[in-house]
Amino acid sequence: MNIGPFQILIIALVILVLFGRGRISEMMGDFGKGVKSFRQGLTEEDQKTDPPVTPQRIEGPAPVSRTATPAETVVDAQPADKNPV
């Protein structure tokens, strides 16, 4: 069943006669308000579920301070007070 432009025009005229021009425009206005309210509800819901992300500092283990053990000390091969002759 194909609906052509002539059938659409007849349906529109019947609806206009049944409801009147003022009632149709009022219904379309209410429909627009409903869509707008729905969109606002979606954006508000997104804002509630997605809190702003704040960077957090990640702390690792504390640095280890070491002192040299006697086995790790460097010994010069030649003493510094020797004079070459």
Rank of each mutant, 00 (worst) to 15 (best):
G32D: 12
P51Q: 09
I15P: 00
E44Q: 09
P55C: 01
E59D: 10
G20V: 03
M27T: 06
E45N: 06
S37M: 06
E45W: 08
D46M: 14
V53C: 00
Q47F: 01
I24P: 01
D30N: 15
L42C: 08
K48R: 15
T43D: 12
K36I: 06
L16Q: 03
L42K: 08
L16G: 00
T43C: 01
A62N: 12
L16P: 00
Q47V: 01
Q47A: 13
R39P: 00
V17D: 07
E44R: 10
D30S: 10
V35H: 05
V53N: 01
I24Q: 06
V17M: 07
G34K: 09
D30W: 10
P52S: 05
R21E: 06
G20R: 04
S37R: 11
S37C: 01
V53Y: 03
I24A: 04
L18V: 08
R23I: 06
D30A: 10
Q56A: 12
G22T: 10
R23L: 13
M28F: 12
T49H: 03
E45Q: 07
A62Q: 15
R21P: 01
T49K: 11
D30T: 07
R21G: 05
L16S: 01
E59A: 08
R23A: 15
M27F: 14
L16T: 01
R21Y: 07
T54D: 14
G34A: 14
E44N: 13
G60E: 15
M28P: 00
L18A: 07
T49F: 03
Q40E: 15
T43I: 15
S25W: 09
P55D: 10
E59T: 14
E26F: 04
M28S: 10
E26M: 06
D46P: 00
G29K: 05
R23N: 14
S37I: 02
V35E: 11
G29L: 05
T43M: 06
D30K: 13
Q56D: 04
P51D: 08
R39N: 03
S37P: 00
G32V: 09
S25L: 14
E59P: 00
Q47M: 03
G22V: 05
G29A: 09
F38Y: 14
V35M: 14
P61C: 03
M27L: 13
E45A: 15
D46T: 04
S25C: 06
S37A: 12
V17P: 00
V53P: 00
S25Y: 09
T54F: 12
V35I: 15
I24H: 05
F19H: 02
T49C: 02
S37G: 04
R21F: 08
R39G: 03
Q47H: 02
K33G: 14
R57Y: 10
E45P: 00
R57S: 07
A62D: 14
L16H: 01
M28E: 09
R57E: 11
K33N: 15
G60V: 09
K36H: 03
F38V: 07
F31K: 03
K48A: 15
E59Q: 11
Q40R: 15
G60A: 14
